[in-house]
């Protein structure tokens, strides 16, 4: 689906990526995580042809994305963190934009809008930022593009809308579609993503399916003073300490705690690598 090879990119003298190799396969929802300034948004912009790599290539289904070929653009959609919708009815917006996407489905759009309690006859100029985001996400899902990139899609959404977001994304997911969600709000996407990609310091810190992570690591809370064997990272929590441990034979599988894993990877990347290599 998307193959990034030997990517090098910088803003002036500030280098963001160096020799980055990465692949995004179809049929998966990726969670793209990283510290502020790590290059998450930049990576999405490079994948959509909005930025050009200094060296290396970004290939999407055989298209070099720096050429912004219309056929490639018709098969991807990006939901940026901040966007601007024109002052018109959503119905008119659909009429002007949907014909660019050959797989656009009006039925999917109406279903998604229904889920959020919205209709297509609304005037975009009168919507709040959160409502605009919901409408835009619905349109993005309805385009049925093979690649859907979302940058902080749950920012500005109210609490019921966040769970609805997970529901509509899961419903619109297909085997030949790839969704990449860049976010800091990991709780909002915790049960949604099935592959985790963490970037930092210009390189890939972790790139692994959730199932494989849970196969190698366990996550849990322990009372103060109780430090289990095989702990590779701990941080204070309401119950005492939240701990990431290497999973050994006989250990039960625990649900993935993305926030804890992220902190472990950023604070102690070598220990996490060793834990994955050990099993």
């Amino acid at each position: 689906m998307v193959t990034i090879s030997n990517l090098e990119f910088s803003y002036g003298s500030h280098r963001v990526f160096q020799n980055l190799d990465l692949t995004f396969d179809e049929g998966k929802i990726y969670g793209l995580l990283g510290m502020n300034g790590a290059g998450k948004s930049t990576l999405l912009y490079l994948m959509s042809g909005l930025l050009f790599a200094k060296d290396g290539t970004v290939d999407f289904n055989g298209h070099n994305m720096s050429r912004r070929s219309p056929n490639a653009l018709a098969d991807l959609f990006i939901v940026p963190e901040e966007f601007d919708l024109p002052a018109m009815t959503f119905e008119r917006y659909i009429k002007l934009n949907a014909p660019f996407y050959p797989n656009f489905s009006r039925e999917t759009l109406d279903n998604c809008l229904n889920g959020f309690g919205m209709t297509a006859d609304m005037n975009l100029a009168r919507l709040s930022m959160g409502q605009k985001k919901k409408a835009f996400v619905c349109f993005a899902l309805a385009t049925n593009t093979s690649l859907l990139l979302m940058d902080e899609p749950t920012n500005g959404l109210d609490i019921p809308s966040k769970s609805q977001f997970r529901k509509v994304v899961a419903e619109c997911m297909t085997d030949n579609r790839t969704i990449i969600i860049s976010t800091h709000q990991v709780r909002d996407v915790e049960n949604l993503i099935d592959h985790l990609t963490i970037v930092g310091s210009g390189k890939m810190l972790l790139d692994m399916p959730v199932a494989q992570i849970c196969d190698h690591l366990t996550f849990g809370d322990f009372k103060l003073g109780q430090q289990p064997d095989g702990a590779i990272y701990s941080q204070p929590s309401a119950l005492g300490n939240a701990v990431v441990c290497s999973r050994t034979a006989g250990d039960d599988e625990t649900p993935l705690d993305i926030e804890l894993l992220f902190n472990a990877v950023v604070a102690n990347p070598d220990s996490v690598k060793q834990a994955f290599a050990a099993k």
């Binding site: 959509s48 909005l50 912004r68 653009l73 018709a74 990006i78 901040e82 601007d84 934009n97 660019f100």
Partner: peptide, 17 residues
């Protein structure tokens, strides 16, 4: 504006069009 630029540059049409 960056927000509008993203939408316009990723609109599925060629640079010439």
């Amino acid at each position: 504006k960056t927000e509008r630029r993203i939408g316009y540059l990723t609109l599925p049409a060629s640079n010439a069009e």
